[in-house]
Design a protein around this nucleic acid. Structure first.
Lengths: 360, 360
DNA sequence: ATGAAAGCGCTAACAA
DNA sequence: TTGTTAGCGCTTTCAT
């Protein structure tokens, strides 16, 4: 027995280059490049030969070199606070779906809600000279804002519209979302309202919802009766615990507004277990409209945060912006898209005041 | 009033280069480069001047050019089937945590469980010449396998160890996981066992668990009594529906094994609502050990799939492999790490046969 | 401690 | 239709 002779060449020491394909096919590098990019006129004959050679060698083009030479990088930086959240994956999916029909590719960076990490991630991503940036929120460090402003590419800030965008913005007004929910709750006749949320001072959107919420309550002459905050851990479990705690401390509460659906669902589980009459004795509402929770025996009232729509719109703006990237200052800069979140009552928020309970 | 004079320069038409910093600081490009990378000896004086100039201009280095020149790209391609799953974000977090202590950065690609998408995503990522690849699963198209083999960088296939890896592998044996669960269930005295899972023929790990499961049942002289599959939709809701359906169709069932925790949780909700005695009359178990579900009134029996550990180990292998990238064929190639999943009984799986029910 | 020259692998622009 | 030339912005290497 002799050694194997003609196996596929094993891992080559040196990555293949265009030159290798050129030599293997007897066609100039330039023409090989054209074939591989479907650019310019190439005769069917050479095209076939080149493709065969490339495939045969297992050539994978070097985008680094291509990008440097062409000054074009078909990457879109997407910067979000978290992945474990269930809300951002939804946005990402929508972004991917839109970009799939373009030459652009999303690249994701995660900040964990930390401004300094955001700054670093942004710097790293910008150093790859992407075609655009989609970034969550309107609050950034001064340095980050400076980088975004001077990047010279389309920037879309997403999720939130309460503030001053750098370039384009797509989102909802969280302040308004909070107000809407408060108004709905008050209209339904609830009066002793508690709030449960994250401790994170850096979750600006949760903060704005809370501000809008209390503002609208104030307008109705009401105040939040009691509140409870958490950090870390399983949101469902935390929601359950916090609900038990707040109800024990303030038994007069007749409504609980949660800053997200997960803790709201935990609260709902507690109420079901404790045999509390929902939504009669106690109403509940969350925020986000995450479909994960379909399948519970009761549907938590919530507010759709338009995540998919936000992702889609943002990606479209970037895609359009990239098209006109040459004619700088093109038509798609500085767009503003404010979406309308809608309340889903589910069945943990009654529609009108219970008769006689709080006569109007 | 005259026009503003000295504002920060607005978005420059042309991105800044090293040369700009060089000119602004009166230091050669080469030395500027050294300062910016903390390499070689540079006097404190010039260092300060350069840093000041760079910061002042708002210079962001061009990694494309740097990578091309240095033939080094500190990127790690991470290729996973899905983000909406709750299991992969966990792995990603672990990978990020490890890579944070290195110059490497993860870049994520999502395949939606489609081999052709995997192939495309892989091709795209390899064309950026990353320092390593972490990819879910051992099943890939021939073309994908060829690309991985000839990439000349460390490859780590994760999640699953049942098969032949290209280079390194970190995961658990899903076949064994299925067997273990079956054995536990049988030992607890359950005999009429149903299975609920995804329809996806491309979820190889779920398939392997199922195979191991039936294999172990067979060894005990048992067969799956009935089964139910789903695709798409809210897993929780699907779990609920499927559970109702299978119990109606096969009321003799005394145990349900779910291919993931989400549908298992949906099933649990159904049982609680329907007043079914769990785990006495009916036992339940899922797979993954996702902490999201803490907070339910009962803890679903499940099996920890070691997601964090898998991510950590995989990242470590890449990080080590990258270190020795020059001395090719270094010490860290072809490692195999099989983790041990452990069963968490929760309280939906009784520990021993109920007295008298199935006398042994 | 600093600088000059060469070139990474590809593509834009032009020439043939 | 195909080929040639000149860089893209940086880092390597070698000289000073």
């Amino acid at each position: 027995m002799t050694a194997v002779t003609d196996d596929k060449p094993a891992a080559p020491k040196r990555p293949l280059t265009l030159r290798d394909v050129s030599e293997a096919s007897g066609v100039s590098e330039m023409t090989v490049s054209r074939v591989l990019r479907n650019r310019g006129d190439v005769s069917e004959a050479t095209r076939t030969r080149v493709l065969a050679a490339a495939k045969d060698l297992g050539y994978v083009p070097n985008k680094i070199a291509g990008a440097l030479a062409s000054q074009r990088v078909n990457l879109v930086a997407v910067i979000i606070p978290s992945l474990s959240n269930m809300v951002f994956p939804r946005v990402l999916t929508a972004i991917s779906d839109v970009l799939d029909n373009t030459p652009l590719q999303p690249v994701v960076g995660v900040t964990n809600y930390l401004p300094e990490r955001e700054e670093k991630v942004l710097y790293e991503m910008l150093s790859w000279r992407p075609s655009g940036v989609i970034i969550a929120g309107l609050e950034h460090s001064e340095a980050a804002k400076a980088m975004l402003r001077s990047a010279g590419i389309p920037i879309v800030e997403i999720m939130d519209t309460d503030g001053t965008p750098i370039d384009s913005v797509v989102g909802i007004s969280h302040r308004r979302a909070g107000r809407m929910m408060a108004e709905t709750i008050v209209k339904a006749g609830y009066r002793k309202i508690g709030f449960l949320g994250t401790k994170m001072p850096l979750d600006h959107r949760a903060r704005k919802r809370f501000e809008g919420f209390t503002e609208a309550l104030a307008k109705a002459g009401l105040e939040v009766v009691d509140q409870e905050f958490y950090a870390g851990g399983s949101a469902l479990a935390k929601g359950r615990e916090m609900t038990a705690a707040i109800l024990e401390r303030s038994p007069e509460i007749d409504f609980l507004y949660y800053s997200n659906d997960m803790i709201g669902a935990g609260g709902l589980l507690h109420c079901l277990d404790a045999g509390i009459d929902v939504p009669g004795r106690l109403g509940l509402a969350g925020f986000n409209g995450i479909e994960l929770l379909d399948g519970f025996s009761m549907q938590l009232a919530t507010m759709d945060s338009c995540r998919a729509e936000i992702g889609r719109k943002a990606a479209e703006i970037i895609a359009q912006g990239a098209e006109v990237s040459v004619s700088d200052g093109g038509p798609t800069r500085g767009r503003r898209v404010e979406l309308n979140p809608t309340i889903r009552h589910g069945n943990t928020l009654r529609l009108r005041p219970s008769e006689g309970l709080y006569p109007e």
